[in-house]
Design a binder for these strands. Structure first.
Lengths: 225, 225
DNA sequence: CCTTTTTCTCAGGTACTTCTCAGGATTGGG
DNA sequence: CCCAATCCTGAGAAGTACCTGAGAAAAAGG
């Protein structure tokens, strides 16, 4: 269980390091924001403890850049007690928890464990295929940056096709995965829904990424190369 | 905001329950130590109000066992005023605050809020989403700078939606988190309250930040960009 | 105790989704 | 080129999800 601790108050850092080591964690300590960012990008940790007030680069910026680099290690922010910063900012930037100083060591350990247990959450599940993107969090679909509104069934179908992009998927397979197992109808309904999708994700953009492979099924590919 | 109240004096328990419910908390009451311990381990609360003198198992033991089971929900002890027990004991065992009976209801609420704020980081002091803002401290909601008056239930629902902004939340999820766990009714009540909220936070401002995602749930987004 | 507010249920209405069907279009093999 | 298999698609019926006004029931506030 590897922990990166980014904290400039040497005394506090040492206390926490010793305590966590004692609890069985492997702790690495750095004392400024730039080193923190570097450490976070260079080696994998199970969780990052990030102080807000740091020399060279403050905690917010470190967090922001970590997330920009698509590193989704859980981050727990350590904030001083006055409410100078708005804590929602930290969450917006992708912090997973925060702790207000001074904190009890027991609380720290408990929260740390909770965070690790939750694991690096499946945060950016947003799938992309060429200019087509899908975000399961808010169920939105975009081609480039124009939003596309899909019904539940259309969405389910597209999600399945995106997961299996560049593979031919048969109508039977689609029925099995997108429709109710108990579904009794024929497979014409798949043809119909493929039609709906084409009109929404391809036709308005003069694309044809969703093609028919006669006798086999359908094939979704990326646009632009 | 879920509270577990462990208190054997039925009258006091009922008063507190009603008062807290009125303040927007969801309160569950049990009347003895064993039930309290069981409840605390079985479902998640934001804070536990724990009387010291309890039938079957006293408050100290309950607290100790709760902590032994690695449950770190903030606990506020309710102690009778005579100094039979030393209050530092409570802290040693992992209580986060205590209140001496008889206590003022206002003080209880204030300390409870402080505790929840300290203990549950996912409840920042003031939440904002676009021009919509909510201050849990005084339970006020504003759109821009016009105040909006909400009932307890409306407030709870909005708070939940704001915490999960930009995510689709299902009616079942809403029922689980905003309504009493014991709630038996169908989920039409959610539709009704979504309607109420829309009439208060969206319609008067010609906005539609609270949208329906058919077949999935509801989605709260920020206005203006 | 009576009044007001809040919560919840119900039922009718509306709008949307899903699916079926049938005829038309397309494709590939002979 | 013609035929048969396959796929597409417009229209519409059936089904479902959601909204909302009205009002009963419960709680809160005099």
């Amino acid at each position: 269980m590897r922990v990166l601790l980014v904290e400039d108050e040497k005394l506090l850092a040492e206390t926490v390091r010793r305590g966590l080591t004692n609890e069985g964690f492997i702790v690495e300590v750095v004392h400024d924001g730039v080193s923190g960012l570097w450490a976070a990008t260079e080696s994998p940790y199970d969780v990052i403890l990030l102080d807000l007030m740091l020399p060279l680069k403050n905690g917010y910026d470190v967090l922001k850049e970590i997330r920009q680099r698509k590193i989704w290690t859980p981050v727990m922010m350590l904030t001083a007690k006055d409410g100078e910063y708005d804590q929602t900012d930290a969450f917006d930037l992708g912090a997973d928890d925060y702790l207000t100083k001074p904190f009890s060591f027991l609380v720290l350990v408990a929260r740390l464990r909770a965070l690790i247990r939750r694991g690096a959450p499946e945060r950016p599940v947003v799938m992309t295929l060429g200019t087509l993107s899908m975000d399961p969090m808010n169920r939105s679909v975009h081609r480039g940056d124009t939003a596309i509104s899909l019904t539940a069934r259309e969405y389910g179908l597209l999600q399945f096709l995106m997961r299996r992009h560049d593979q031919v998927v048969s109508k039977a397979e689609i029925l099995d995965n997108v429709w109710d197992p108990a579904f009794e109808g024929g497979d014409n309904v798949v043809e119909v829904y493929i039609g709906y999708l084409r009109r929404k994700v391809d036709a308005p953009f003069n694309l044809s990424t969703l093609s028919t492979v006669r006798g086999m099924g359908y094939l979704l590919t990326a646009d632009r190369g």
